[in-house]
Simulated assay, not measured.
Amino acid sequence: MARRIAQMISIALMAGIAVGCSTAPSRFYSLTSTATADGTPPTSAAVMVGPVTIPASVDQPEFVVQVAPNQVKVDEFNRWVSPLNDSIAHAVAGDLVVLLGTPEVANSQLANFVPDYRVTIDVQRFESIQGQAAVVEAVWTVRKTVGGEVRSGRTVAREPVQGQGFDALAAAHSQAIARMSGDIAAAIRAEAEQKS
Rank of each mutant, 00 (worst) to 15 (best):
R3G: 06
A12P: 07
A12L: 15
M14D: 00
V19T: 12
G20R: 10
S22E: 13
S26C: 05
R27G: 02
F28T: 01
F28Q: 04
S30Q: 10
A35S: 14
D38M: 10
P41V: 08
P42C: 09
T43A: 03
S44H: 12
S44L: 14
A46G: 14
T53G: 08
A56I: 07
P61I: 02
E62M: 09
E62P: 03
V65Y: 09
V67I: 15
A68H: 10
N70A: 11
Q71V: 08
V72A: 08
K73C: 03
K73I: 03
L84Q: 02
L84H: 00
N85L: 00
N85I: 01
N85F: 04
I88L: 04
V97C: 05
L99W: 02
L99A: 06
T102A: 03
T102L: 01
P103K: 12
A106M: 10
S108V: 08
S108F: 12
Q109G: 12
V114S: 10
D116G: 15
V119E: 08
V119I: 14
V119F: 05
D122A: 15
D122S: 14
V123S: 00
R125Q: 13
I129F: 01
A133T: 13
A134N: 09
A134Q: 13
A134K: 05
V136C: 09
E137F: 07
V139W: 05
W140P: 02
W140S: 04
T141W: 02
V142P: 09
V142M: 11
T145Y: 08
G147Q: 14
E149K: 11
E149A: 15
R151P: 03
S152P: 08
G153V: 06
T155H: 03
V156L: 15
P160T: 11
Q164A: 11
G165N: 11
A168W: 01
A170P: 03
A171K: 03
S174Y: 02
Q175L: 07
I177R: 00
A178C: 08
A178F: 00
R179T: 04
R179Q: 12
M180H: 05
S181F: 08
R189Q: 02
R189G: 06
S196I: 12
